[in-house]
């Protein structure tokens, strides 16, 4: 693809989102933009509302006010399965796979997007040969890293327009995290817009074009990763 022009419109945009669980409001006006082909990292301590923000973007949670826009279209209130069929791929935190299905069966479930099973398997096994070796193994018995690869394979194979990733690094060794983020950056280069939620990871800062720090249901700072790294460590360790 050609270089994106400087003032291109965002592919994913959250405008002044408020959201609640029951009567408790957890997002108090979140604005966030993900331009085409870029990686935006959403960081912040536990309970800041990062996962909720992602759920709103994925259609799992309808915002109480504000709007979700994809490619300029207002999609707030659209169901998650409809978004998924339009190549908006969400990989939720720590459970991006069906533990009682085999690797192949997991990949079969990605075919609702309209991509053929053959294509999905080819892309997945090419990128992750280890999954190919374990194609008939039950996913729950894979190692944590392999499980995350399986989840990522789905994101890769259906060539998403928008990829929403939650806590990719959770419970994984640094080397694997690095490998996974290498893939994220690769997907982004091919034009996918990516929103990554992470609580603690330096790795994501290496691939992110933009990082946003979230605290108590609000975006506190947005900038280049290098600009906000110092704020981050203060936010976490309270020093």
């Amino acid at each position: 693809m050609t270089d994106a022009p400087a003032a291109v419109e965002p592919l994913l945009e959250l405008r002044d989102i408020t959201a609640s669980y029951g009567t408790i409001e957890v997002l108090h006006g979140v604005d966030l933009v993900v331009p085409p082909g870029s990686v935006v990292a959403l960081l912040g301590p536990n309970g800041a509302g990062k996962t909720t923000t992602l759920s709103v973007a994925a259609g799992l949670l309808a915002p109480t006010s504000g709007g979700v826009y994809m490619a300029g279209r207002d999609v707030s209130g659209v169901k998650p399965d409809e978004l998924a069929r339009k190549r908006v791929v969400t990989i939720p935190e720590g459970k991006g796979i069906f533990p009682n299905l085999t690797v192949k069966e997991n990949l079969l479930m990605a075919s609702y997007t309209g991509v053929s099973v053959d294509h999905i398997e080819r892309v997945a096994f090419e990128r992750f040969p280890r999954l190919g070796e374990r194609s008939s193994q039950v996913a729950g018995t894979l190692s944590g890293g392999e499980q995350q690869m399986l989840a990522m394979a789905r994101g890769l194979a259906v060539e998403p327009a928008i990829l929403l990733l939650d806590e990719l690094s959770m419970g994984l060794a640094p080397l694997i995290v690095e490998e996974l983020y290498g893939i994220v950056s690769h997907i982004a280069k091919s034009g996918t817009s990516i929103l990554v939620v992470e609580q603690f990871a330096r790795a994501v800062l290496g691939v992110a074009d933009t990082a946003a720090v979230m605290v108590n249901g609000r975006i506190r700072a947005v900038g280049k990763p290098s600009e906000i790294e110092n704020d981050l460590s203060a936010a976490y360790l309270g020093a």
Binding site: S169, P174, E178, R202, S233, Y236, L237
Partner: peptide
Amino acid sequence: VVDAYLGAGT
């Protein structure tokens, strides 16, 4: 501890 919180240094 610092590594655990911020990820292994790159």
